[in-house]
Amino acid sequence: MSVYDSLIIGGGPAGMTAALYMLRSGKNVAVVEKLAPGGQLLKTAHIENYPGFVKPVGGFELADAITEQLMQYPHERITDEVAAITQESGLYLVRVGERTLTAKTVIVCSGARYKHLGVPGEERLIGKGISFCALCDGNFFRGQTVGVVGGGDAALEESLYLSNIVGKIHLIHRRSTFRGSRIFEDKVRETANIALELNTVVAEVQGENEVSGALLKDVHTGETRFLPLQGLFVFIGFDPEGDFLPAGLERDKSGFIITDCEMRTNLPGFFAAGDIRSKMCRQVATAVGDGATAAQAAYTYLETLHG
């Protein structure tokens, strides 16, 4: 079985850019992506802050363009999930489904996923009233009463989107001030069918076969009350997609991978790029930059192997 120069995990903006750079420098590369290429771009309606696009570019459109550009360079693409990574005599063994792939370097670009509330009732009711995508599921709640949980840009923006579809929104946030942009916050405060439930957390989601409401808890008094809801949209941040990462890899306390400014981790030949890294700014522009940087660092590392 062949040994790849570089195995890239994740086909979002970071992974596709890393692959593009590795392939253009003549390396043999496999990209493992469990879903269609694009990553979070596929969850984004429009992107207004990616340089080079005067009009907002559609998330699908940008994903397709990057994929098409990458496809000009022959490489192996595997549609499945990486389950585990181990090290053996200077090589990385990557388990994907029933196969084990071998590579001299690994570039992890597995991104981030929506954080769950972690309260009783949640896992059971996902898809039965609990949603992480307003654009996808808003229509199922036309004219109904829904909750939105969170206090950042995502929660504010999605509340504004939903306010045009649903009857009434309760925006549930654990603090008294919002983390998101002022423009969104002002609009939210002006929107008649958005009620703010501040200093409040969701303690439990209730419902038999579909959401019937949420048990809310006041963070100061500890008092609880039941709020009847047909839907609950959760936007409380992201967790790293890192269940498969090897032991011994340095990560921050939230589980994001620690790298230096060349995207090198503490393991030789092991690089990380994009949202999976421990960093402040998680955007398409930074993911793409990380991908290019990681590829260059991996290329340099491969050169040293040949002595």
Binding site: K34, L35, A36, G38, L42, K43, T44, G59, F60, T79, C133, L135, C136
Partner: peptide
Amino acid sequence: WAPWCGPCRALGPV
């Protein structure tokens, strides 16, 4: 699924 739904599209090839 629906054509405008991103996660649906992500799942398509699978």
